[in-house]
Design a protein around this nucleic acid. Structure first.
Lengths: 124, 124
DNA sequence: TGGCGCATTCTACAGATGTAGTAGAATGGC
DNA sequence: GCCATTCTACTACATCTGTAGAATGCGCCA
């Protein structure tokens, strides 16, 4: 499930609160972007075609609902980045993060702790 | 410096070894993609326009060289991903990584190892 | 010196993406 | 019942991307 930039905006709004109407989304995105109402509708239509979003009519108004989870979309985006820019491996990414100082010591510790817990509970 | 998918392919090849001719790149990418020579040339031309790549003629053949570092391109891609899919913060990404069951045990182990090494060598 | 082979530049073109206008249908207030 | 508002469906269109063919140029060998 590959999303475009604009589609991410819509999906983020939808994940944040749903179901939602086009108008809801427009309000939610108000500070971020300044799209015409019809632009948002177009995006939603495309997302429905892609089966990323479900649409149900209530009266004459459509109500939308995400069909793909944020987790799933994130995974897909993450994998793409990895494949494209980091030789498809986590290693180079982590190295990069370390060098870029994007991770604070605290974040590193946190990640480590969670990974340990994971490894233990799964015994892998 | 935003690169498209195809452009990443070219850039990866260029970073791997440079300077390089279009033919070199084509050979290097041979197993990955199956582009016509002119496709690669088109990509290179666009990258030169974008100032991501430098071009120097040797005889009647162009030799190319990256003008943006891999590190820089990676940073830009990483930031885009973060902004787009992870609320612009490292925190959610870290959580995602930790929770994501799709990461192989191997990737997790690798991640952990690197973090440990990092933590040690930096003493933070 | 006429090709052969490889390089270059130009042009093309379909599909994806961002962005939105327009027209017609439905709804709510008076 | 009629008008203003608001929604939907359809259409438009410039740009960007992926992909490549055609035409043309140049060096080298027989």
């Amino acid at each position: 499930m590959k999303l475009t930039e604009a589609e991410w905006q819509i999906m983020n709004a939808l994940w944040h609160k749903h179901p939602a109407t086009a108008r809801d989304i427009m309000d939610r995105l108000g500070d971020r972007v300044n799209w015409a109402y019809t632009t948002i509708k177009t995006m939603l239509t495309r997302l429905v075609e892609k089966k990323a979003v479900g649409e149900v009519k209530e009266g004459n108004t459509s109500v939308y609902e995400p069909l793909v989870s944020q987790q799933k979309a994130r995974l897909s985006a993450f994998r793409s980045l990895l494949d494209q820019a980091f030789d498809g491996a986590v290693g180079p990414l982590v190295h990069f993060l370390a060098e870029e100082k994007q991770l604070t010591a605290r974040e590193k510790a946190e990640l480590q702790k969670i990974l340990e817990r994971e490894a233990q509970s799964k015994g892998e």
